[in-house]
């Protein structure tokens, strides 16, 4: 090699660097975290998936068509991604938000105007939630069109329908939390349906009038009152931040696990 005049930057000698790298890579700490090297070998390709807590949801190998966007539309994955985005931004919003009629609206204003990055966190939370509703519908459409609910995947389809319902309920309970005119009346319209429940709602057919009254029917149970008031806000907050996310998380684990157990990505094989 002819000597080049340019390099005046004093990078460590290649051999030193290599040696340093080797010392790190071979240290007990490093090897306790990373179990395999990065050479592109078939073995490492398999280990990259097996040894990673996220990637091990996948099989190590899969049919070619399963990697194609035109087959999967990537909608299930995007739904999960949107769930993660709403979780992260939602935790951020929880730091500043108090679910009482007194404070809720002002806390949103505070988030929008005073909290650094508050506005974009709220925007991302809301738009990701709307996007999740759309992607979960498209995911269902794709799974239907490819007939992927057919045996042996019947039960996983049912789990998916439950997840779709929970997605809508998550979005609906979150809709109330800004405590503005838009949210309170949208939730009023939505929960007014509950009073028409047959037998259990006070305006529904076959409801025994002496037992099912405006202050003892399912709508009252849902709202903790006869109107969408402070107790409804608190209930929706708890449902939105604790109950439904846990339920969705549990069902998602089941859903992903079943995808593998039912034979992985569906296909014409």
């Amino acid at each position: 090699m002819p000597k080049l005049p340019l390099p005046k930057l004093r990078l460590p000698e290649r051999s030193d660097f290599e040696e340093m790298k080797q010392q790190i890579v071979e240290s007990q700490v490093w090897r306790s975290i990373f179990r395999h090297g990065y050479e592109d070998t078939p073995r490492n390709r398999v280990l990259a998936v097996l040894d990673n807590v996220w990637l091990h949801l996948h099989p190590t190998k899969l049919p070619v068509h399963g990697t194609k966007l035109r087959f999967t539309w990537c909608m299930g994955g995007l739904t999960f991604l949107m769930f993660l985005v709403t979780t992260v931004t939602g935790v951020f919003l929880m730091f500043y938000y108090r679910p009482t009629a007194e404070y809720a609206y002002n806390d949103i204003k505070y988030l929008e105007f005073d909290v650094p990055f508050g506005m974009i966190m709220r925007n991302m939370h809301r738009w990701a939630a709307h996007a999740m509703v759309i992607t979960v519908w498209l995911h269902m459409l794709r799974v239907f069109l490819t007939g992927s609910y057919k045996p042996p995947r019947e039960f996983n389809w049912a789990v998916g329908v439950m997840l779709l319902t929970i997605t809508l309920l998550l979005s609906f309970t979150g809709y109330l939390l800004p405590w503005d005119q838009l949210s309170i009346w949208a939730v009023t319209v939505g929960t007014n349906m509950a009073r028409a429940t047959p037998v259990l709602g006070h305006e529904g057919p076959f409801a025994p009038p002496s037992i099912i009254t405006p202050s003892s029917d399912v709508r009252f149970m849902l709202l903790g009152g006869t109107i969408v008031g402070p107790s409804a806000l608190l209930r929706f907050y708890v449902l939105h931040c604790i109950f439904f996310p846990l339920l969705a998380g549990g069902l998602m684990m089941l859903h992903f696990w079943r995808v593998r157990k039912d034979g992985g990505i569906s296909g014409p094989l």
């Binding site: 078939p42 390709r45 398999v46």
Partner: peptide, 23 residues
């Protein structure tokens, strides 16, 4: 059958980045 790494992971990663940029 192809290896999940990189054939599937690559697409997922790109789609995720694209979606996050749009969002």
């Amino acid at each position: 059958r192809v290896h999940t790494w990189p054939h599937l992971v690559r697409s997922e990663f790109l789609v995720a980045i694209g979606a996050l940029i749009v969002l």
